[in-house]
Amino acid sequence: MTFEVKEKSPKLSPEMQDVIERSHRDGIGDGYDDTERYKYLIMKMLTDNQDILWTLHNESLEKDVDINGNLYGASYRNVNIFNYLKIPGAQSEVRNFICFEVNDVSKYNGNAVLLEKNIIFRTISHEDECITDWGIARQDLLAAIIKNEFDWTNVFGMHIEKVSDVGRISENGYYYREFIYETVTPNNLVNKAKNGSVAYGKHR
């Protein structure tokens, strides 16, 4: 018995389907979307980390664990972990969140082949949830777990370097820690730049 894959929405050309599939591949491929590849890897690392899932403290998702006592990370996507910086919808219940964003900021030293890239994390905790039994505030604990995993990692290819790490308050009872990593990456060259004197445009 096999199930056919159903058509996804929006309808995409085979070329763009390949690009998205390559972006979501674990190993290094070619012809992917750089930002989506970063976001996919970050989301995977966050939802695979049990320390993060337990610290996010979503009671309804803690009711069921697998045979190893682990939480199901996929259920946290777009509930407690977002791959953009805004938490959607009006919040009527206390929750904790992680948001992140990936930005290409500027050319590296005027070199068009290399780019400076930013990864911004926000670990957000409501003031009712801040206190943990470990003596560390929840938003700081979430940040510490992420930093433990991401500091100087080369999972994206180049090492990433933390350039900023600040605690902030929001107006409506949420505390958050925002920290920014910086790295230098090739300027989306894979499978797009060709040899010769022509610049790095796409050849057809």
Partner: peptide, 9 residues
């Protein structure tokens, strides 16, 4: 029902 997500009971 999320793939690899929490089972539904």
């Amino acid at each position: 029902l999320y793939v690899h997500g929490q089972p539904l009971v």
